[in-house]
Write a protein that binds this DNA or RNA. Structure first.
Lengths: 190, 190
DNA sequence: CGTCTATTTGAATGTACTCAAAAGCGGTGG
DNA sequence: CCACCGCTTTTGAGTACATTCAAATAGACG
């Protein structure tokens, strides 16, 4: 298990002593995923130690819309059941062969009770995820498709060459055909 | 100060004893706002006890895009500085004459240190805000303007008649003109 | 009552989508 | 090692949803 990576990730926001770190590690379940394999989690969170995952939903016309990419050192989860009436179901799968450490919701809540420090960590994680979801919302409302693509390139420069283009299209909210056209017309203007 | 409302709001997720409640209340600053008046907060959160506020940003063409409405019994805040590179600034103002209780970021963090219970409360608040921001993101990507309007009516039935129509347009991501047209064509189909 | 802002309506326009077909690319097996 | 298969990307023509701009009407507030 890649313990160091996740402990370093946590150390960005809280300091753990050995006892806390050890206990935390016992709660994690390692999970390997082949490309395109689904991660079945129900309110649980997963930390990516290898590869890249995505969470997405499928609309009534069968089109996929990507909520989040999770490369190495990122957290991803499915919190749809935290709010009762949330009928909008989310899938998580691996974009390439990947490995994750899963913390179940049950164990997470137990952890919060035993060491409130961890509740702080996830409070901060949620705050930051919310700020970035809010920024993305404002971007979708304010920007053209071309600008959203440029914004994506700026924020996720490493992902651009790593991801199939159709996934980027499904993230910024255009059809794959249109993204292809945007790229070719952008080239002509340089 | 409307203490009961905010204590009841908190009681939805955590139980407070008298000491905790009293201490919490001392940290709040009451603030009255006239219609259209700005709420100047920097990473602070506000709880609405009267009226209705909104948070929004203004794009490079001068158009407003609304991130959130906050009627009575809701929390609203401006967390843009939590993430350094977040250049996207947010305004908060009162849609009608309103009253809020402000908890400064400084006092909030102090509160978390003294009573971890409150960190739990805000962790839960952030989780729920994130789930609903995520749902809205998926809606914007998946639904047509007409469907987004219907979805808004369903989720915020009380706000429909309370808000100027142009604000609803700025929330669901259409021009006020187009929202007007949607409503009139929807009427013909009934 | 008058002024200012919000809403409605219409015609012309544009951005992004749909559908279809061709070209490119990567992995697998013979 | 090459050929084939499936999946992704590109390109094009036609279309649709939503915007822009303009003007008229309605509504709210002092």
């Amino acid at each position: 298990m890649n313990k160091n990576l996740i402990l370093q990730n946590i150390a960005k926001h809280i300091q753990l002593n050995k006892k806390e770190a050890d206990y935390f590690l016992t709660l994690l379940k390692e999970h390997k995923l082949k490309r395109k394999q689904f991660l079945a989690v129900e309110n649980d969170v997963a930390f990516v130690t290898k590869g890249c995952l995505r969470s997405y939903s499928i609309d009534t016309n069968g089109f996929e819309h990507i909520l989040q990419f999770a490369p190495v050192d990122w957290w991803i989860g499915n919190m749809r059941n935290l709010i009762p009436q949330n009928n909008n179901l989310l899938n998580i799968d691996a974009i390439e062969d990947s490995e994750v450490l899963i913390l179940s919701r049950h164990d997470q809540l137990k952890l919060f009770d035993e060491f409130p420090k961890f509740e702080r960590f996830f409070r901060i994680l949620m705050e930051r995820a919310l700020v970035s979801a809010n920024r993305r919302l404002m971007d979708i409302l304010a920007l053209t498709a071309q600008q959203r693509y440029e914004s994506f390139c700026k924020y996720y420069p490493t992902l651009i060459n790593q991801l199939p283009q159709k996934y980027i299209a499904a993230y910024i909210g255009v059809t794959p055909e249109f993204l292809s056209k945007m790229k070719s017309t952008a080239l002509k203007n340089t």
